[in-house]
Design a binder for these strands. Structure first.
Lengths: 196, 196
DNA sequence: GTCGGTAATTATCTTTTGTTAATTCAGCCC
DNA sequence: GGGCTGAATTAACAAAAGATAATTACCGAC
């Protein structure tokens, strides 16, 4: 029997695919749920999975030289998350991946995924499409660092992700913007005082 | 007769390819040379080419709201350069691509390239490989903005690209690091004074 | 509802950056 | 070589950010 939840999730992440195309994915994808605060991947681990987030929110962080947790990324529902270091370069994870809320994912081993994709050209087109989206997002993020100052980056973040701002602690958002939580707090105060 | 220059260049950008694999590329790739200060792409233009830089250096910049040229990228020999906006999203270029030195490139129309690749699985593997390298570089650059302060970013840049530092104006480097030229000058002075 | 722990804000101070302008430096053309 | 042009440095000041600590706000457990 077909797992409808899996089917729906895979459809969400695909484009122009028919049921017959995703049979292979459907049978190989596994479901998993992380409790709040639970770790998906720990630094040093070797998890070559691609995760499709169905629900919830993951933060990616590294430990700085001073022993501080620096959040580098936040990902949530309808986004893909994976440890690029591990998948593309066979290295242990450089970061921790932690669920901040109860988080449901569908995941696939990368190598198995590659094998399934290689057997179906329509999946190949889809892989390309997803890869392009990922690259585009990365390039856009680089531009925010080059072209915008901290306040503008925050406003840009709020505008692009209005639903996320109230879902995660500001200190996590601050670090992804390349600033300290204290500084973000001041920026917010500045913006608020300007509005009235 | 085979153009040996083209052949060498394509080999440099490939991995595990044999002569027979790159015949298609060889016949479609075009050579072009830009004089110093000449533009490869102007904002608004629509150039769907992939450029392989054989020699020289290109800077990518945008015009800020204040009318200032902000350099977002520098690329040089043995690197690929392309206008992602245009290629992946059919939009006009958001940036200017300017040669800072006499620059020789090999270029291919993206759609033609796709067609050639689709006819040879070994090229497909190569495309994947290049795409991964491009993504990796983008992700690494994001990390420098999140994890490093301006001074550390500059030191990291010098360490990673020692040969480039003396080849382009500091003001261009400064902007790619997300800081002003004046600030970079101070950072350099600080580093120098610390050394003695 | 109280307690305890953590996040967020605020305060204070230091350091750094942005901005603007003046000065020095370097390359290039004639 | 002298002069021109733009880059780099330096200066001076204002604004912002980092660091640290104190205070306040919030939330979950009991």
């Amino acid at each position: 029997m077909i797992d409808l939840e899996k089917l729906r999730t895979i459809y969400k992440f695909s484009k122009n695919l028919k049921l017959q195309d995703i049979q292979g994915l459907l049978s190989s994808a596994k479901k998993k749920t992380y409790a709040a605060d639970e770790y998906m991947i720990q630094a040093g681990e070797y998890k070559r999975n691609i995760y499709l987030i169905r629900k919830g929110l993951i933060r990616v962080f590294q430990i700085s030289e001073k022993g501080e947790e620096i959040t580098t990324n936040l990902r949530w529902e309808n986004q893909i998350i994976a440890d690029i270091n591990c998948i593309l370069f066979n290295e242990g994870s450089a970061a921790y991946f932690q669920a901040l809320e109860e988080t449901e994912v569908l995941y696939l081993d990368y190598d198995l995924l590659q094998k399934i994709i290689s057997e179906n050209p329509k999946l190949e087109a889809n892989r390309k499409y997803l890869f392009q989206k990922i690259l585009k997002r990365a390039l856009d993020r680089i531009e925010t660092f080059v072209l915008l100052n901290p306040e503008e980056r925050y406003l840009n973040f709020v505008k692009s992700n209005p639903d996320i701002v109230n879902r995660v602690h500001n200190k996590y958002i601050a670090h992804t913007l390349g600033i300290t939580p204290v500084s973000l707090s001041r920026i917010r105060a500045r913006i608020a005082s300007r509005k009235k």
